[in-house]
Design a protein around this nucleic acid. Sequence first.
DNA 1: TATTGTATATTCAGCGTCCATAATACTAGC
DNA 2: GCTAGTATTATGGACGCTGAATATACAATA
Lengths: 311, 311
Amino acid sequence: MPRSQTRHSLANQILDIVRNARLEAGHHLREQWLGDLLGVSRTPIRAALDLLAERGAVETRKNQGFFLVQSFDALQRLQVEVPSSAEQSLYKQLVRDRLAGKLPGSVTQSEIAKRYDVDRGVLMRALSRLAEDNLVARNKGHGWRFLPTLATDVALRNSYEFRLAIEPAGILLDSFRPNPAVIERCRLQHMVLLSNPDLGSVDSAQLFETDVAFHEALAEFSGNLFLLQAVQQQNRLRRLFEFWSYGNKRRVRDWCREHLAIIDALEAQDFTRAANAMREHLTNAYEERPQISANAKSGKGSANRKKTLRA
Amino acid sequence: MPRSQTRHSLANQILDIVRNARLEAGHHLREQWLGDLLGVSRTPIRAALDLLAERGAVETRKNQGFFLVQSFDALQRLQVEVPSSAEQSLYKQLVRDRLAGKLPGSVTQSEIAKRYDVDRGVLMRALSRLAEDNLVARNKGHGWRFLPTLATDVALRNSYEFRLAIEPAGILLDSFRPNPAVIERCRLQHMVLLSNPDLGSVDSAQLFETDVAFHEALAEFSGNLFLLQAVQQQNRLRRLFEFWSYGNKRRVRDWCREHLAIIDALEAQDFTRAANAMREHLTNAYEERPQISANAKSGKGSANRKKTLRA
DNA sequence: TATTGTATATTCAGCGTCCATAATACTAGC
DNA sequence: GCTAGTATTATGGACGCTGAATATACAATA
């Protein structure tokens, strides 16, 4: 929630709403309506709409408010880039350097402040977020220590084992209630991927988000909040390790098919089959797991970033 | 890690060490040794030992340091009470009042500051801790909202379901390695409880800690960090709901026996049996789950809610 | 030599003030 | 009536300072 990041973030959410509701050009975007949907007051909504006006997605008419310039499908590609905060890059940098073995298991705030030349505010926020994600913990006295969560090979294995314990179990709960609309949406996303002859044109982030959306949707269906939170935590973790380069295109096709098989079972209300399929899917995923060493090498996806980690 | 709470906390940890190591009266407690064990420097250790000296557990000899006055078993009962901070009581108060329906789903800082007459520092820390425990989350704009985690009936059920998914699974992992010493210690604790003719003399906190120690030990044996973290989170949550009044003494004896059965299976290296026993144990625990009404005593506010779970 | 006692250097958390941002109330236009 | 535009109130984060708690270095003592 920091900074004017919210403006950008809200702008993106408004775009999502437009796309989801399939609004046409000329549609009147009422401020209060958006505010209610997003749970904020008109003030920040207005700021976000101003931003979108600058980008040409909407226009403002005096005393009438904001109107869509383009229809929802013309906006498919538009996305307001969220200015990455210093905090975020420090977060990533810390994870990166720790993985590369450049940081000791225990560090103090000022060591970091000196090394990366950031001020306390940024530093504290970054460390807090790392703590939230269970990547670091405060030492008893001074300093912070990295948790073994960041010893990737073991952590990766633990992660799959953990998901294997909870995700199929979630499907088998009495409270499990798949939402047809969400499922259909999910299926579509996967079809799009599969229909793409060369997955090369699809960027990793999109692949990953499709994957995440699928697993989190199922976790949500389970009706169990703890399960959902656990799955979300796992995904946040997975997002970190950027060996989501998806070099293995075949594997992508495979998991798409596996996801679709699970979706089929869900639509047939055959939850036992779905759970089994999920179990298999996770097992496969682990067996064809991304190679850490391969990733730690150069991280194509982030070539523009400083090559601090691989000498 | 706030305040001079650390002194008291450290003092208790030192007592634990003495008991675990079964040290005799007159034993020389070297500062650096304790510091290394607890991961802090000599300064706070010294403060804690001073505290223990005040309580008569250790004595200080000029230029020689600290020595145990009583042997480990004479110290079984001693525990330094940690002065409860304003932050902690606010935390509890908030949970309590929310459960009793006295607080709305969404609150702002100053509403709370006014209602409970606490300053912002305390307030922020309490809210942060609540957020860590996934009990509240920040609203997008201003204010905080309580998460459904605090809708006790559903949450309790979710909690058991979640534990049922992960705890037995942990036992069945390849990496599961029970530590004989820890198991033995656990067994002893349970035997003590069972041998107690009238559990009335044992206070709830101790019962609860025995329970928690058992489950967390097993989670730790699993070698899976995520699983351990998840179990710990569940226990932190359970600690909150103080319907751990253990009014049901019979149930206490039952779960002691169930725990012991699991321990037996572990010592026989029969992990399948142990996992099954754990599954049964958790199922029983849910079926004889604590009645929420007992806690929400005043709880007119939640009277409507609590009926939903009892069949 | 190993450990305590003491002094000094760091570290980080508390606290107060300030200000960007958000919520709310109110006015004006359609 | 509803909506946008504008002003006002408030919230909670940012920033800097200070001091207690911690770590560290060194002297004293068994």
